[in-house]
């Protein structure tokens, strides 16, 4: 029995009929063609499907589409503003934080949330913050550097204003 749901995805309002059992990740990929959000497992461990729901990182395979009714959703496709890369996107490029790119969208979205909660994390805090996201390519070394790069970039203008 399809249910009508409405949510804001990357700033745009969408209304669709979905099956009650449709997972949010499949809704994004299949109904909205937002294939930047990936499915890497079926046990909610890998984090490849991480997105932001109302500003918080959520594994979109752990949520039904109907549960996101009325929410504000941000996926990797909606992260850059006015054609300019988000500091995390820039950091991943500058520090070679990605190889095959499959875990990258989830990794970046998890990192957005991480930096939101802790704008100046230590290496250990970054590593712990990424516990729910697997990467098989990078050994995480450069992912940590990428997030440090972004933290620095985000904090610099704030520090400049403060001083």
């Amino acid at each position: 029995m399809p249910t009508k749901i409405t949510m804001t995805v990357n700033g745009q309002s969408v209304t669709k009929d979905v099956d009650a059992r449709t997972l949010l990740v499949h809704f994004l990929r299949d109904n909205l063609q937002l294939t930047g959000t990936h499915v890497g497992c079926d046990t909610s461990n890998c984090g490849a499907c991480t997105i932001l729901v109302d500003g918080h990182a959520v594994k979109s395979c752990t949520m039904l589409a109907v549960q996101a009714d009325g929410s504000e959703v941000t996926t990797i496709e909606g992260l850059s503003q006015n054609g300019e890369m988000h500091p995390l996107q820039e950091g991943f490029r500058e520090e070679h934080g990605l190889q095959c790119g499959f875990c990258t969208p989830g990794m970046i979205m998890a990192a957005v949330d991480l930096l939101d909660r802790n704008p100046d994390p230590s290496e250990q805090e970054i590593r712990e913050g990424l516990e729910g996201n697997f990467c098989r390519c990078t050994g995480y070394h450069n992912i940590v550097r990428s997030i440090q790069y972004a933290a620095k970039k985000i904090n610099e203008p704030k520090k400049a204003v403060a001083s």
Binding site: T35, G36, L79, S80, M85, H96, G101, T104, P105
Partner: peptide
């Protein structure tokens, strides 16, 4: 040299097999 392939992966525009319909 920074990777030329990165942009599509960083913006969710990579095209993997399961993305193809």
């Amino acid at each position: 040299v920074k990777r030329v392939e990165d942009k599509r992966f960083l913006t969710g525009k990579g095209r993997y097999t399961d993305d193809i319909v």
